[in-house]
Simulated assay, not measured.
Amino acid sequence: MKSKSLNQSTVLLMAISAAIVVANINYIQPIEAEIAQQFNLANAVVGAVAMITQLGYAFGLLLIVPMGDIVNRRTLIMRLLILAIISALLAYLAPNIWIYAIASLLIGITSVAPQVIIPYAGFLAPTGQRGRVLGNVLSGLLVGVLLSRTVSGVLASYLPWQTVYLIAAVMIGLLWLVLWRKLPRDPRPTPTVSYRTMIKTVPKLVKQYPVLRASAVNGFVLFGVSNIFWATLVFYLQHQYGWGSREAGLLALLGVTGVLAAPLIGRLADIFKPRTIIGLGLVLSTIAYVVFGLWATHIWGLVLGIIILDLGTQFGQVANQARIQSIDPKASSRFNSVFMFGYFLGGAMGSFFGNLLWGLAGWTGVCGLAVVVLVCGFYAHFVHYPHVLKRQATSLNQ
């Protein structure tokens, strides 16, 4: 039976909302070189600012997203959008790197609305369609990541890079007006649990559910290796091909493969064990870096590697969301908070250490770092997690 409050147009609106808001945290990646040039900074310094954005997002996930379990989610989403507009305007007006760094931190913290929308969609979706609905909304999230890099890179090649943030503020403002009229009302009664009490339950949930810990680690790995690539791509293009932000942004369009695949991945997660789909994500990401390491000097190697890498990231994202949203609907926002905290903490570390390794060892260092992280991911997924489940089953049977 289809949810009366979650028809096809509502799912599409949620997907578009996720795309527009999440784009804020990725605008910086293709324009790092322009920012470094304007403020006369080393690339590693701008890489640290990109990390600050991701860290802000991670801590917003940890401290704000869980509120979705105790407050009206529609109201929370609308308020977050207003704060996101203010943060984008501050980045647009920033006169120096310090103000821009503060704006970047605030952009990260205030751009977590999609992570309230995702569990909200999972809550409203009929049980047998949860994977498909989440796959569609997550497609919007990936579109936002994809187009943010493209829009940012192309605009910065023709206009001052700050213009990107002005356009972002206008788009979120228009989105706010649409959501005010169209976003479904939260059907839950308002819980009486306090914020402090609710936050205290988060570590208990992490301890209680091995699947939640496994998803957070997997998200850390897959988004970490994705950001290792995207944070350093513009520098590699300058070094290898003499290209800049425009070409980096255009290459990001190749991620449309992952967008198109997301609904299919969601259906697969409804049919097969999500853990199997996640394993495929690790394999695909590894293959991508083999391609980057061997053939990135050829443009076809970059193209092929980007397609495979985005598919690997999306396999992990959709399948992990499907399995954590099936644990307990009453705590869906907290589960999403823990998972996405690990996810964007990995992204922040990937941005920072990717830039660091680029400065120390070039493209070889970048690819080597990603392979090391992926080896850790394989161990966690195929060795450590099954061992934890086996130990847990043994203790329950005793």
Score class of each variant (00 low, 15 high):
222 L>T: 08
79 R>W: 02
374 L>N: 03
166 L>T: 09
51 M>A: 15
338 V>Q: 00
168 A>R: 04
115 Q>V: 07
322 A>R: 13
217 V>S: 08
213 R>V: 10
41 L>K: 13
33 A>G: 00
27 Y>C: 00
25 I>K: 00
243 W>E: 13
87 S>T: 09
14 M>A: 14
390 K>R: 14
38 Q>A: 12
288 A>M: 03
395 S>Q: 12
162 Q>W: 09
31 I>Y: 12
227 N>H: 12
15 A>P: 12
203 P>W: 04
229 F>Q: 01
247 E>C: 04
241 Y>P: 00
169 A>D: 10
156 A>Q: 07
159 L>S: 11
290 V>T: 13
9 S>F: 12
33 A>H: 10
154 V>N: 03
265 I>K: 06
392 Q>K: 14
239 H>D: 13
361 A>S: 15
341 F>M: 09
81 L>C: 06
344 F>Q: 13
165 Y>N: 10
298 H>I: 00
254 L>D: 08
341 F>Q: 01
328 D>F: 02
98 W>K: 09
238 Q>W: 04
1 M>E: 12
210 P>E: 03
128 G>I: 00
224 G>K: 05
209 Y>D: 06
183 L>K: 01
14 M>C: 11
157 S>V: 03
75 T>M: 13
284 L>T: 11
236 Y>R: 05
88 A>T: 08
214 A>E: 08
142 L>V: 15
19 A>V: 07
3 S>Y: 03
145 V>I: 15
263 P>V: 05
262 A>C: 06
278 I>M: 15
381 H>Y: 04
96 N>Q: 07
356 L>S: 02
363 W>H: 02
110 T>F: 15
293 G>H: 07
221 V>K: 01
55 L>N: 11
218 N>H: 10
328 D>H: 09
352 F>A: 11
132 R>H: 10
269 A>Q: 05
320 N>Y: 01
292 F>E: 07
64 I>V: 15
15 A>Y: 12
